[in-house]
Design a protein around this nucleic acid. Structure first.
Lengths: 338, 338
DNA sequence: CCGGTTTATGCAAACGTTTGCGGTGTCGTT
DNA sequence: AACGACACCGCAAACGTTTGCATAAACCGG
């Protein structure tokens, strides 16, 4: 934002015409004579004129920018989502401002505030693990800035959202373990504060119930990180609680479990089978390779952005909130092969 | 950017005072009486007034926004960098606009253009693999917007930059392989168009030379992706070109090599040792775990941003361009243990 | 030669802020 | 009574655009 940048006024002064004429000439307005247009456009080219998007935003009350609130960028899933977002935003000529909450509620609130101040035209949000109050998000709606939630949605707020069918995916993952003969299946789950944590657990429970396998509270642990998984599995083994399958809420967790299990001398998948969730880059490179649910991060990003842009463009005619459910495919690999 | 948002004028109208008074009251200017301040601040609070950052940017000719050009977000290294960038930008009250070039030159040029139009106060860039013309980047400098390069820097343009000592890291990695008794070490390298590709290869060559091992062109392949690595290794083995070590230009490449080698029946590290580069999340979860160079992505992001902010803040007094070199630590793991 | 149309341009306001400067009104002081 | 000091506030311009409206010149037909 330096003084160096050429403005319309500069062009006008140089050519001894008014700023309005320059403005119109630049966008090929029919009112302007061919010679003037040529002169203006040539000068603009020569001086490398770049329209000031800030001034435009102010004038049009439209920033052509969307905001993204994301828990943590350094996750294969989330960075895929960002990639998808960026790609469709780019095609539509929108900028994207990224804010990471680092899984902290306070920071998420601050993020929301700055996005509002930046007058973004809409926001894409996935809430942090610790967010239980949603005023800062409702605030977007109160100010008519459209919001679409992706992946980690919030329960009581009507807005567009794109999610995967966590319940069904978890059900199928667990079902897959059952089909391969496992009966004592541990679940390393996410925080119950998150809908996805809840849903995945419910899917797991449904599969058990359907198969007539009683749920064992000892086998259900809230553990959603590499380290927590190691601890949890270690504890199970040390307490001599038997299990022959693990359904983990994400891949890193699954891998933590896998390594601990192997270190303790058990064979995967022979003695214990493992299924993860998210299907990141990891899944293909573990030994054995990891069965996982493909969460389609990139696709989720593109879809969410398309929905948001649609809201932004057709801002006048209100239509009911949509919920898109991506079906999550179970990718069977070595860790659960029968 | 909806009409709904409260402005200073709204507050002024409501209180029957002027906009200037409101503005001053909000920032506790001494000219304003306590009662007025109280009234204004209370109303602002009640109506949830958010200052319009766009208007401010225009006025101050300063957007408090930095732009980032990044090759591909979905890489552990790059997403770490972004995370670092975002964290220090957040602390300094700056927004960050992310543009990914997707490794395409044209897109990078477009990115540069929109960042310029958005009047970002500075840019952080890592060039794409195919960028050989730098006009779009010099353009930033011509317009006095500071630029700092990270990781993938460009040769002939003076600007701040933060890199890791690729040459030295590659040297040490290769040296490590030599020290463990390997003499026929293959190099899966990056594109020679990139300085880092060049430097890593040179480091590799230096280590060989120093040890009196002749470089074998057959063992040097440009392969910087999982798939290319598989192909390259497959080819080496099929052609019966013997090797007992691999130094790969990144972890995914190393893992591609590792898997192919294992699939062909060779033992790692016993028969063939492997060293990667970047030390992403992968390194700890392969079997065996992967020796790799820690590239310190997060740190690189924070450092680059600090340098940029310093330039932005102290814009008047020019100081010479700085180059910070992060030392990259070799993390020895299972894939190269003697 | 006059009224009317066309063509090409400029004026000014607006978007939401900030800020230098000037203008009130109320004191206290001599 | 007059004057300066002080406290408090508003005017207006500016940042870089866009756009409705007015204006000016040129042309045309009758």
């Amino acid at each position: 934002m330096k003084s160096g940048l050429v403005t319309i006024k500069d062009l006008a002064r140089e050519l001894n015409i008014s700023a309005s004429t320059v403005s119109r000439a630049l966008k090929d307005h029919p009112d302007i004579s061919k010679e003037t247009k040529r002169a203006v456009q040539e000068l603009a080219e020569r001086l490398n004129y770049q329209p000031n998007a800030v001034a435009l935003s102010l004038k049009q009350r439209r920033s052509n920018t969307i905001g993204v609130i994301i828990p943590e960028i350094v996750h294969y899933f989330f960075s895929s989502v960002i990639s998808g977002i960026e790609d469709v935003a780019y095609d539509a000529g929108f900028n994207v401002i990224i804010c990471q909450s680092n899984e902290r509620y306070e920071r998420e609130v601050a993020n929301a505030k700055t996005l509002l101040a930046s007058r973004v035209d809409g926001v894409l949000v996935s809430i942090s693990k610790h967010t239980t109050d949603y005023k800062h998000l409702e605030n977007f709606q109160n100010n008519e800035v459209p919001i679409v939630f992706y992946d980690r949605v919030v329960p009581n707020i009507v807005a567009d959202q794109v999610i995967i069918d966590d319940f069904d995916a978890a059900y199928r993952a667990t079902r897959h373990l059952i089909d391969s003969g496992r009966t004592r299946i541990a679940h390393l789950g996410g925080p119950m504060a998150l809908l996805i944590g809840q849903n995945r657990k419910d899917g797991y429970l449904k599969a058990l119930k359907e198969a007539g396998i009683p749920a064992d509270e000892n086998l259900i642990v809230e553990a959603d990180s590499f380290e927590k998984a190691r601890m949890a599995i270690m504890k199970l083994i040390n307490q001599k609680i038997k299990f022959d399958g693990v359904f983990a809420t994400n891949d890193l967790t699954a891998i933590g479990a896998m390594q601990t299990i192997q270190k303790k001398g058990y064979k995967i998948p022979d003695e214990i089978a493992i299924v993860g969730f998210s299907d990141g880059r990891f899944s293909g490179i573990t030994d054995p390779t990891l069965t996982s649910v493909d969460q389609h991060g990139y696709e989720m990003g593109t879809l969410a952005t398309q929905m948001l842009l649609k809201r932004i463009i057709s801002e006048d005619d209100e239509y009911p909130a949509e919920t898109k459910v991506l079906n999550a495919d179970l990718i069977v690999r070595g860790s659960s092969i029968i």
